[in-house]
Design a protein around this nucleic acid. Structure first.
Lengths: 193, 193
DNA sequence: ATAAGAAAATAACACTGTTACGATACTCCT
DNA sequence: AGGAGTATCGTAACAGTGTTATTTTCTTAT
């Protein structure tokens, strides 16, 4: 039953959106009653946390198994991975809202869920380290660069989902431009005061 | 009455948050009935749009009147403006959610509201143009650079509000680092394939 | 088989947005 | 000034929400 409820919740989130995601509807479509959600998840927030974690499972899977050309430049691979991040967000905008945009009022993921969330950055950190082993991007720590790239990709995707940048090509071009700027290895300007 | 309702809604949004912002509570605290919201705003979404527009009024005001040292480097002024953007977001996180993070399910601002939103970028574009008149940042169009900087600042702020980056200093440092990277005038890497 | 525990159905409570129905109050035109 | 027309708003209702007792069902272990 636990699995059925989560499956229905995931489908309803994708098809109807966050606004229509109610305990009654989920329970009904799963063929049970709302109390099941309280027995098995401890309430709606518990089910939302399961949804939150499920989203990160799928995000990390999407980042693990992406079309990778071995002939690619190691820095180019990082660009590809960030593009894949954007593809995921545009494909699952409701999940993205739950994971990164406080889509459910007064819902805060638990600390273990937060920890799980951070692990989704590992494919990116890994590829940065590979690039560094090839002699690129040596001037930054892998974690710091990964977070910077993540922030940039999230910035684009979040505003795009909010309705700014209606044209996908424009958002994509800006995304690429930002990635290029942030991965530029020959930076000459000193620290700003 | 229109003004009283909006004022109460603004206060409730700041104090109680998006989850507790209900028509009944707003009407009661304004000393009227919920039907007033329908007469004067056409429903809750209309009131939310008024809140949306009000948020951009206050954002643009915060960006217009920020502490500016005339001795600052013109590029440094752009950094200061972006820092002020982050200050606004951290001070009004609920308004920020309405404006930039689809905080209200199934609410879409009208096209005129969207147009108003874009105008908030004008102080930034203006200062970029001033910097260019001084011979800096000549290699980019002012609008494109403004959007890029906006995306970066939004990326930081949005993830910070979502609970990632619990330490403000860390977020601030990353913000500054991204701004520095994106404003670096001596970029040498060519376009990525 | 029986006791103990978890799981789920029913029904209720306090909320939510929205709408019909009146009753005002206000504007505007003759 | 007086009346027509419209905008405004209070009351009450409807459908839907999360949540919680209470009761029943079912599973599981001894």
């Amino acid at each position: 039953m636990q699995h059925a409820l989560l499956k229905v919740a995931r489908k309803l989130l994708a098809t109807e959106g966050l606004g229509k995601l109610s305990t009654r509807r989920i329970a009904q479509q799963a063929g049970t009653s709302t109390t099941a959600i309280y027995s098995l998840f401890g309430g709606k927030d518990g089910l939302m946390e399961a949804l939150y974690l499920d989203g990160f499972d799928r995000l990390e899977a999407a980042l693990q198994a992406f079309p990778e050309d071995d002939a690619d430049h190691p820095v180019q691979r990082i660009v590809t991975l960030n593009r894949q991040y954007r593809v995921f967000a545009l494909e699952y905008p409701q999940d993205y809202a739950v994971m990164f945009e406080r889509g459910i009022p007064d819902f805060q993921p638990s600390s273990v869920a937060r920890l799980r969330a951070w692990q989704s950055l590992r494919p990116l950190i890994q590829r940065i380290q590979e690039a560094q082993r090839s002699g690129f991007l040596l001037h930054q720590s892998p974690e710091a660069l990964a977070m910077t790239l993540w922030v940039a990709s999230h910035g684009i995707v979040s505003l795009e989902l909010a309705g700014y940048f209606p044209e996908r090509l424009e958002a994509q071009a800006m995304h690429d431009r930002m990635l290029r700027d942030l991965l530029d290895p020959d930076r000459t300007l000193g620290t700003l005061p």
